[in-house]
Simulated assay, not measured.
Amino acid sequence: MAHSHYENFPVASRLMPAHLRPHVAAIYAFARIADDYADEPGRAVGERLHLLDQWRARLHDDRAPQDVFLAVHDTVTRFDLPLSLLDDLLSAFTQDVTTARYATWADVLDYCRRSANPVGRLVLRLSGYRDDALDRASDAVCTALQLTNFWQDLAIDWSRGRLYVPEEAWRPHAAEPSVLDGGRMTAAWAAAMRDCGERTRALFADGRAVCDGVSGRLRYELRATWLGGTRMLERLERSGFDVFTARPRLGAADAIVIAWGTALWRATPPSRTHS
């Protein structure tokens, strides 16, 4: 998963159990290389699509795997991982080559379903969890993390010709995309981004329960991930989503706050519909 789009995701951190780190790293390497095929400068569209097609073919060919696929196939076999989750990642990377704009929230969320949600489900599977409720909560958090990365990288993505803010989010505020060429956050775009932030915050809230539904070190990993994502969203909100003046990042001071919040975490109250 490229750093630009997956900055807030856990990647084999020290909070993950040691025996799982090589397997998370294998999946990361598989996805990172594929994402480079989609995004690395200097390649034509046809070449990018060809490389991604070859990468997909190697994923499904378990005869004498080489390089990163030795580790990937071992991980898939050992943990009985659905190849469909890895296929979804490749589908999203391919879409990054062919699609630069999105008309509706449904379109953006479908992209997140394939670009982000598989990450959470793979981590759950590696940790031994196969539970529909956990999957749904994980999907909400992963989508929220992906959207937060989109808002964080609005200026960068626009410079590359991409816009993940759907038209139905900016059109009601008359926030024309061409204005972004000026490299500043206008009042209209700030209003559109506030709406995007509210939707993202609701997804974080919807998925918070996944942090309480797992045990062991994974629980702390997910808490830290959730807190890091919401903290980044708060930073974007405080700045009025002005990522043209400065792209917000989390630093050492934030890590201390996140660690403290992880230790003092309060479990998500049960849903009233299930009480």
Rank of each mutant, 00 (worst) to 15 (best):
M1F: 10
Y6L: 02
E7H: 11
F9K: 03
F9I: 06
F9E: 00
P10S: 10
A12C: 08
S13V: 06
P17A: 11
A18Q: 09
H19A: 10
H23G: 01
V24E: 12
V24C: 11
A26H: 05
I27A: 00
A29V: 03
F30C: 02
I33S: 02
D39I: 07
D39A: 04
E40P: 02
A44T: 12
A44F: 10
A44D: 14
E47G: 03
L49E: 14
L49K: 06
L52M: 11
L52V: 07
D53P: 00
R56M: 09
L59M: 04
H60R: 08
A64P: 06
P65Y: 08
Q66D: 11
D67A: 15
F69N: 03
T77W: 09
L81G: 04
P82H: 00
L83C: 01
S84M: 00
D88N: 03
F93D: 01
F93Y: 12
T94S: 13
T98Y: 07
T99V: 15
A100P: 01
A100G: 04
A100D: 09
R101T: 11
A106H: 13
A106N: 14
V108W: 04
D110A: 13
Y111G: 07
A116G: 02
N117W: 00
N117I: 00
P118E: 03
G120Y: 05
R121E: 09
R125W: 05
L126T: 06
L126Q: 10
G128Q: 02
R130E: 13
A133S: 11
D135M: 07
D135Q: 00
A137I: 04
D139E: 12
C142L: 05
T143E: 15
A144E: 07
Q146N: 06
W151Y: 15
L154Q: 11
A155K: 09
I156K: 15
R160V: 02
R162P: 08
Y164K: 01
Y164C: 02
E168W: 08
A169P: 04
W170F: 14
A175L: 02
A175C: 08
A175R: 06
E176V: 07
L180V: 12
G182K: 09
G183R: 11
M185S: 08
M185H: 11
A187V: 14
A187D: 15
A188S: 11
A191Q: 12
A192M: 02
R194L: 14
R194F: 07
G197F: 07
A202W: 02
A205N: 06
R208W: 05
V210C: 14
C211V: 11
R217P: 09
R217H: 11
E221Y: 03
E221M: 06
L222F: 15
T225D: 07
W226S: 00
G229Y: 10
T230R: 14
M232V: 04
E237R: 04
R238T: 13
G240N: 09
D242F: 07
F244H: 12
T245G: 15
P248D: 12
A255P: 01
A255G: 06
A255K: 11
I256H: 14
V257H: 13
V257D: 14
V257I: 12
I258S: 08
W260C: 10
G261N: 02
G261L: 05
T262C: 12
L264C: 13
A267H: 10
P269L: 02
P270Q: 07
P270R: 12
H274Q: 05
S275T: 08
S275R: 11
